[in-house]
């Protein structure tokens, strides 16, 4: 009986391991294109280029591709194509900061100032009407519109372990230690059961 159970358990482990191998080996070939059709508005494409630049600064290829598409998009209303081309040149010259500034100027978006830039609570970012639907001074975003036209840098929170942070850290450790002490004190005695 015991050996039967052991062999079943071994078989189950082998089967699960085989499943894992199959799934892992299937992955590369199965990764498929899930992209959608690209916008024909140069404004949208420049915004996307900026967003990629901000989110993935190492992905220059995608940024350049978006800027290329923007400069040749069928609908170029609200976009200064010359600035888009300049942005692409700056990108090729390995100056992503200038490329971003030019791209933002190309669509009339508010240029970024610094990574620590923090819009005040309640501040809308109207910029120009060319910055996208729902972001004009008179229109608030509705439905699933993104609403914002600025592209602040990602905000990485750094801890210097001083002042309040250090106090919170010490208090947290103390609370955890008290919890450990009480959890040990209140743990069940595991008394023997005699049915």
């Amino acid at each position: 009986m015991h050996s039967t159970r052991s062999s079943i358990a071994r078989g189950a482990v082998v089967a699960l391991a085989a499943l894992a191998v199959v799934l892992f080996s299937w992955a590369p070939s199965a990764l498929a294109d899930a992209g959608e059709g690209e916008s024909d508005k140069s404004t949208d494409l420049v915004r996307q280029a900026i967003a990629i630049l901000v989110n993935e600064p190492d992905n220059m290829e995608s940024v350049a591709e978006k800027l290329d598409d923007a400069s040749s998009a069928p609908d170029q209303s609200g976009t200064d194509v010359a600035l888009v081309v300049s942005a692409r040149d700056a990108l090729m010259a390995n100056d992503p900061h200038r490329a971003r500034t030019l791209a933002e100027q190309a669509i009339g978006a508010k240029p970024h100032l610094a990574s620590a830039e923090t819009p005040a609570i309640g501040e809308t970012t109207p910029s120009s009407a060319t910055a996208g639907e729902g972001t004009s001074p008179m229109t608030m975003a509705t439905g699933a519109q993104a609403g914002e036209a600025t592209f602040p840098d990602p905000l990485e929170v750094r801890t210097e372990l001083a002042g309040r942070d250090l106090t919170v850290l010490v208090l947290s450790i103390l609370v955890g230690a008290v919890g450990v002490y009480l959890a040990l004190r209140f743990r069940p005695q595991r008394r023997e059961v005699h049915p």
């Binding site: 915004r47 600025t150 592209f151 801890t159 609370v175 955890g176 959890a183």
Partner: peptide, 27 residues
């Protein structure tokens, strides 16, 4: 209490950041 202590430590040592405001049409 143990969990709260761990959460406090994580919150101080690994605080979550935030990315830039969103743009439609990219992933």
């Amino acid at each position: 209490l143990i969990v709260i202590g761990v959460l406090g430590v994580l919150a101080v040592l690994y605080p979550p950041g935030i990315g830039p405001s969103p743009v439609e049409g990219i992933e």
